[in-house]
Design a protein around this nucleic acid. Structure first.
Lengths: 82, 82
DNA sequence: GCAGCTATATATAAGTA
DNA sequence: TTACTTATATATAGCTG
């Protein structure tokens, strides 16, 4: 994506926020696309510790999504950390 | 992305699942990247109604993420539907 | 379904206004 | 900020095994 950067925290605040804004826009677009094209319900949330704001995109109300997740048996919760 | 497709449900099951698999891989990568580069906590979940499977990526335990969301005042829950 | 290939569409880091 | 531009890196649809 443009000039290559290393995947690590961007130290400079302004640059980090600009990058967040740009990437968030594209990410939301892709989240919406996979939901529509692949007929899945998706949820995306981002917490910025500094700004305390959240974003998400879903086909259903967020509460429904969370409820569905919570009701899912543990063994079906496939998790990718990091 | 490759040959252009219209953003609508892919009717053919096989093709839809292949697309989901490919897109999910890239999406998870990007979710991880934005979390690291922009120093935010993110959560991504996808529910496939047919397979009943879920995926997510986060910097924290999922329960923490959900709890933080639930505790967020309504007016701070910025929502992008569809 | 996984894995690779290729052609093309997107995303995006920097730079500029 | 507030966009817009541009050069380059990625993502990905369709295909072949």
């Amino acid at each position: 994506m443009g000039r290559r950067i290393k995947i690590k925290k961007i130290v400079e605040t302004t640059r980090r926020q600009v990058t967040f804004s740009k990437r968030r826009t594209c990410l939301l677009k892709k989240v919406k696309e996979i939901a529509i094209c692949c007929d899945v319900d998706v949820l995306f949330v981002a917490f910025s510790s500094a700004n305390r704001l959240s974003k998400f995109c879903s086909q259903r109300r967020i509460e429904d999504m969370l409820q569905r997740y919570i009701e899912l048996p543990i063994e079906r919760r496939l998790t990718y950390m990091n």
